[in-house]
Nucleic acid binder design. Structure first.
Lengths: 253, 253
DNA sequence: GAGTGGTCTAGACCACCCC
DNA sequence: GGGTGGTCTAGACCACTCT
């Protein structure tokens, strides 16, 4: 059969000029359920057969949609068990976006030392990066990441407060893990993607103090905007990183 | 039918303990033809139906293998025309691995100024990175990349000479494009993947001279090993990069 | 054994390109 | 019109997990 019973959005879809494959529509529908937290990080989603019935398409089409989401690390498949909403809480996933490793390529798990948390009003620069109005309340976290006893990264992390109300220093310190895993378990918001801009800068007084180097020492400045489901930006951070014995690793394909 | 006529390698395969899906085997067979240059960069490979007949599998299985290779930018599909071996020669692909853009994210196409070419014997460090024996002849190219009239990157590029015999300054200068597109058209060797290690360093005398900055200015040091078909390393380079008005962009997923 | 995802096949029709 | 890749379906069997 070539013309399947169409999913809910199909009628609206066919009215638009741009053609969208069925599996893309299914992908959007699944994403919608993730945004609405029908299925939360760590939980199993319905089986492929069930989803096929629900959306009125074949199992193969659901499979293609799930394949795409699994490639983006939004879902995770486990043969014989089911398909799960991806999570940052597993130890191996705690620092999924951290590309700094020791020079040999060995992954080093850092510990965190929190410095402070304050709520500020967004200026034009940060408002643009986070897609909010100027003056929106932003939570700013300062911390140092320590690799093998050495302070290596000084982070300033800016979060949209509306998304993460009630964030406190005490809670962060108690969480003892990565910020992302805390935000995920507490607010159900998972970072699925990020963009980084890297520069080489000289250490200023503040960075020099926290990283224990002289003013003027060369550091990596790593700017990051992180996005949650539906490509919504929710975090902007700047990390200043010492690269003495450590490097930023990247794969190009 | 569940048991298809098996591809050539299947008998050997079934004897080994590790199971490999058919489409992975097809992928290897296609890769083998790329390594042997049966199909060269820019050329079309046989249609999916033809490949299916050739390997004795269904079109769907060939499709899955080609899908994987297309995702790795090793092959490129064109609906209605065919599937082609990917190439670095198209203008948009000339600088596929170059992640330096101006701060707004705009792609800037640099021009090249070659400084010199010499052939040297590999020391232990470079031999390890390129997977060759110590003492193997290496061609070392020095150049500066110029972005909007400004010298921004000073590169030292090391190539396995055996792979690229007869490389001359004159040929490089005449090529007027990226090194990769020259190597690809001249030697049929295409870079399919690369790994970079980034540090922040202070400019030394040489870099300061070529980049027109003071000694000690902070620069990105970008180390790269590039691999061709079959994950064979053939190039190691170090670029020293000014990040004044420009940044290194990265996508994390 | 029942249920899940993983692989493979066979055949249909669509969208695109070129003759 | 004929060939190419792109989408979708239907059904089979395999591999893994849990009970």
């Amino acid at each position: 059969m070539q013309t399947p019973s169409l999913p809910i959005s199909a009628i609206a879809e066919s009215a638009t000029a741009s053609f969208q494959p069925l599996y893309e529509q299914i992908k959007s529908l699944i994403t919608r359920s993730l945004v609405s937290q029908e299925w939360k990080p760590g939980e199993a989603i319905p089986s492929e057969m069930d989803l096929a019935k629900r959306y009125g398409v074949s199992q193969g089409t659901v499979r293609k949609a799930v394949d795409a989401l699994a490639n983006e690390y939004i879902l995770v498949r486990h043969q014989g068990k089911g398909t799960f909403v991806a999570t940052h809480t597993a130890p191996s996933q705690q620092y999924r976006f951290l590309r700094v490793r020791d020079d040999s390529g060995e992954v080093v798990h850092p510990t965190t030392s929190f410095i402070g948390l304050e709520k500020v009003k967004a200026d034009a620069g940060i408002a643009a990066k986070l897609g909010v109005r100027v003056g929106t309340t932003i939570a700013t976290v300062q911390r140092v990441l320590i690799f093998a006893e050495r302070p290596l990264i000084f982070d300033q992390i800016h979060l949209v407060n509306a998304e993460f109300g009630g964030l406190t220093m005490a809670a962060l310190e108690a969480s003892r893990g990565s910020i992302y895993s805390y935000l995920e378990t507490t607010y159900g918001t998972r970072m699925i993607r990020a963009e980084e801009k890297i520069k080489s800068v000289a250490a200023d007084k503040v960075a020099a103090k926290y990283l224990n180097v002289r003013v003027g020492a060369p550091l990596l400045s790593i700017d990051r905007v992180a996005y949650t489901y539906g490509d919504k930006p929710v975090e902007w951070r700047r990390g200043l990183c010492l690269t003495d014995g450590y490097s930023y690793f990247n794969e190009l394909a």
